[in-house]
Design a protein around this nucleic acid. Structure first.
Lengths: 140, 140
DNA sequence: ACTATTTCCTACCAAAATTATAGGAATTGT
DNA sequence: ACAATTCCTATAATTTTGGTAGGAAATAGT
């Protein structure tokens, strides 16, 4: 149950973007973020593609273009970011969907361990949703 | 951040063992558990090897041998089981160890996102430690 | 109109981790 | 002796992850 590099770098990149935007309210070129956090432009592009799809960043193309946060960092949660990067943070198939093959018992899913995964899933998401991007960069 | 099959099958197997032991207090052959939860003997052997190392099962070899819980199911937590199967449930390297390459800032680790992983790690473990094997098979 | 810059899209490759299989050694009850 | 069982190690197959690459589309400045 390791967190992917996508999630690690993605969150770092979002922090970086938020910090730069707090400093001067301009669009930030992806290359600047990539350099700061130490990944290639091309790799980071892919992460931002996921983030954009989830509307966690907005962009403008062309020369002088770049990315901005679509809303205040106080209203963007870590949970949203990680779910965008980690395919919904689905821990086991059992959770958040039909429980067909994994459990062997789809309807109602009374498989012994279902309750465990369910509770774990909720706990993780609650935890991550309780942290905003703003609170992270403030290191609260 | 998916849970491994090891963890899924391992917990199921532990539930199965606990249930059988509650029923009649004998050692349970691994093959019986493997059949019930639908994995091969050989695969399950590996999981039990990890579980044994963590002293979450005890075994007797030879004909008529098998596995037993070394203590009451009320005093075995899901957290213990999953940590044994999932390499300590380490979410990111940053957590529970030196924070060298991943963060780029080892001492004190003030990397922006460290607090997030730390909190997440604690939350997950607290959640899992709060569930005993007995409560799981009782479906509480 | 041209150029430089930048996001966006898609395909692909390599490495690592996971999942599973296999063979056989060691132990023990009958 | 024999059958049943755990234990140990190697390895094969599959999937996932991490990262590279090329180029299309858009836009600002000249």
């Amino acid at each position: 149950m390791k967190l992917s590099s996508k999630a690690r770098y993605g969150l770092k990149a979002m922090c970086c973007l938020a910090e730069r935007q707090a400093y001067d309210d301009k669009v930030v070129a992806l290359s600047a973020i990539a350099e700061e956090i130490g990944v290639s432009d091309k790799y980071l592009e892919q992460l931002f593609s996921s983030l954009k799809k989830a509307e966690l960043v907005a962009s403008s193309r062309g020369a002088g273009g770049g990315y901005v946060l679509p809303r205040d960092a106080r209203y963007i949660s870590v949970g949203e970011i990680l779910r965008a990067l980690e395919d919904g943070l689905v821990i086991v198939e059992c959770v958040s969907g039909e429980c067909s093959k994994q459990c062997g018992n789809s309807e109602g899913c009374r498989c012994t361990t279902h309750g465990v995964w369910d509770k774990l899933y909720k706990t993780i998401n609650d935890c991550l949703d309780s942290m905003s991007l703003a609170s992270v960069i403030a290191r609260e």
